[in-house]
Simulated scan of single mutants.
Amino acid sequence: MAHSPIEHCTLQGAASVRLHGRDGAHCTALLYGGQVVSWCDAHGRELLYLSPQSRLDGSAAVRGGIPVVFPQFAAQGPLQRHGFVRTKHWQLEPSDGRQNDRITLVWHHTQADHAEWPHDCRVQLHVQLLDQALQLELDVKNTGTSPLPFCAALHTYLATADAASTLLHGLRTDGQAQHFAEPIDHLQFDQTQPMQLVTPQHTLRIAQEGFADAVVWNPGAGHGLGDLPPDGYRHFVCVEAAQLRPVVLAAGARWRGSQTLRALSLA
């Protein structure tokens, strides 16, 4: 019998799912938050950053990996910062046997769940390992009878040995490479072209579909974040696929947005 590429596991005691790729790569997602927290290549090298001070016990949002931002971006609305799905428990959808090379995590919301956000919807996160690549697709369906407004993002923390020595090419600004020697919180509207992140140890191609915008973030020194070590900012940069302007879904309609991270070279 063939070994299943999908493995139920725990990470620091938290219920998780691990997906194994054909080339030996693997990624791990928490059911808490529906959040991918690890992506290792075939040689075991970690390509995402997870803060060692982030708790995985469900008491707070997890800092690192790829948090799902929905239905609100940042503090641009009445809900908690970046919305509430990253602090909810998701479920693993059973495989139908036809596509066992990916996992699908799902979260359902009804009006009765949250008085501040009276909308019915289903949110799915499809996670797939491709050849030297990780692809995430966020799939939102309006299961209610009234219009569904939302913003969304995949808040991707990409590992680097040194943020100050890391460059991001392809951001639609003035054509210059983006440096990370200083704190940055940049919202880039209408970012459709792929980007390339060059770190001291690897190069990644970052492409997105469905998401209209991108966010580039690093808090820098003196960040004051309680779940991040003082020097933690040096070991990641965030390049997020984002939908910063609200999408409004009609009853029964669906929206999809994806981000694909592909390792072009590894030192």
Rank of each mutant, 00 (worst) to 15 (best):
P71K: 05
Q72V: 06
F73P: 01
F73M: 00
F73W: 04
F73N: 00
A74V: 03
Q76C: 04
P78I: 04
L79I: 04
F84D: 00
T87P: 10
T87K: 08
W90V: 03
W90K: 01
W90M: 02
W90F: 08
L92C: 02
L92F: 02
E93V: 12
P94N: 00
S95M: 02
G97N: 11
G97Y: 11
R98L: 10
R98Y: 07
D101H: 06
D101V: 02
R102V: 01
I103H: 04
T104N: 07
V106K: 14
H108R: 13
T110I: 04
T110F: 00
Q111G: 09
A112R: 07
D113S: 01
H114N: 15
E116L: 11
P118W: 00
P118A: 11
P118Y: 05
H119W: 12
C121F: 15
R122G: 05
Q124Y: 02
Q124C: 14
L125D: 01
H126C: 13
H126V: 15
L129R: 00
Q132H: 14
A133K: 08
L134T: 02
Q135K: 12
L136H: 10
L136N: 07
E137W: 04
L138P: 02
V140R: 11
K141M: 12
K141N: 05
N142R: 05
G144T: 08
T145V: 13
S146K: 13
S146L: 10
P147G: 01
L148A: 01
L148H: 01
P149C: 07
P149I: 06
P149Y: 07
F150G: 07
C151F: 00
C151M: 12
C151G: 10
A152S: 11
A152C: 09
A152G: 04
A153C: 10
L154K: 00
T156P: 03
T156L: 06
Y157M: 06
L158H: 05
A161N: 11
D162T: 09
A163P: 10
A164G: 05
S165L: 15
T166C: 11
G170I: 12
L171S: 12
L171N: 02
R172M: 13
D174N: 15
G175T: 13
G175R: 09
Q176R: 15
H179V: 15
H179K: 11
A181E: 12
P183S: 12
I184R: 14
I184V: 14
H186I: 08
L187H: 13
Q188S: 11
D190R: 13
D190F: 15
Q191V: 02
T192M: 15
T192K: 13
T192N: 14
Q193D: 12
M195T: 08
Q196A: 12
L197G: 02
V198G: 06
Q201P: 06
T203S: 10
R205Y: 03
I206D: 08
A207L: 03
A207Q: 11
Q208S: 13
E209G: 11
G210I: 11
